[in-house]
Design a binder for these strands. Structure first.
Ligand SMILES: [Mn+2]
Ligand SMILES: [Mn+2]
Ligand SMILES: [Zn+2]
Ligand SMILES: [Zn+2]
Lengths: 137, 137
DNA sequence: CTAGGATTTGGACTATGTCTAACTCTCAGA
DNA sequence: TCTGAGAGTTAGACATAGTCCAAATCCTAG
């Protein structure tokens, strides 16, 4: 249970070869302190909660930079927006289609067996398992 | 190996409680004759290839109607567009992130084991497995 | 200090998808 | 054969996520 603060965010960014600026630290802190799946818009709202200081362009620039550098991952479950996930370890997702809530399924006990061999000349980038659920009426 | 034509498209639509109009038949035929995963935009292009006869609004109206009626399913793998899938049987997907190609993985041999129990009051809507691959450079 | 590269910014722009009000088609009834 | 009401289609306005750009600002090496 690490306590995340702005200082170790800067370290984390440097460890991923990212120059830690004010805006980048705030955005990383929004994601890592909550350990939640956030949309770009939610990140923007959180970061600008007290006084607006980070533009939309910077939020998107930064999230894409974090993705490139492998600091976060994206989760594509909703056609209308991408979720950003501070947990880059192997795990899967449970998506509540009615509420829009997205939570982790730890992968410890999940086995996916019988996947066919990949076509030649291809390599796996990732395997996403999404369990879509809804509330029983 | 069914040969799809516009006549059995009309039958298929009726069997799914959909009134078969010209536009709906063309859109269904685009998907079922190809057995491919198409975006709304691709459907629009195919259907209007010879002479434009179907509007964007109708393409979207129709695809959403087909979804509601369970005639097709949607596949969410790309943050920028939805793919529509004429195969509603249980199966999974292989997504080539560099080319955008989306193909089926038949589910016969795939087993997903160890999924935790659902939280109470929830029921599964679907389980999506997406294998993301890229071409080795 | 200062200059130059890195970063951030507002706002224009693109693209997917939705909505609406008008128009057209179909077909049952007269 | 005519008619009109409901179903379906349409153009184009609208909403929204995300990208792009040129100008402004920030940082830091010298
Ligand atoms: Mn990492
Ligand atoms: Mn069916
Ligand atoms: Zn996650
Ligand atoms: Zn498929």
């Amino acid at each position: 249970m690490i306590q995340y603060n702005r200082d170790n965010m800067a370290e984390l960014l440097r460890a991923h070869d990212i120059n830690p600026t004010h805006q980048r630290i705030e955005i990383a802190y929004a994601l890592f302190s909550r350990q939640e799946h956030l949309s770009a818009d939610q990140v923007m709202t959180i970061v600008n909660d007290r006084h607006a200081e980070t533009s939309k362009a910077t939020v998107y620039n930064t999230l894409n930079l974090f993705l490139e550098k492998g600091l976060i991952r994206e989760v594509i479950v909703d056609p209308s927006k991408v979720f950003y996930d501070p947990n880059t370890g192997p795990h899967h997702h449970l998506y509540e289609v009615d509420s829009g809530r997205l939570t982790d399924i730890m992968m410890d006990d999940i086995r996916i067996e019988g996947l066919p061999d990949l076509p030649a000349g291809m390599e796996t980038v990732g395997i996403d398992l999404i369990v879509r659920v809804k509330h029983t009426t």
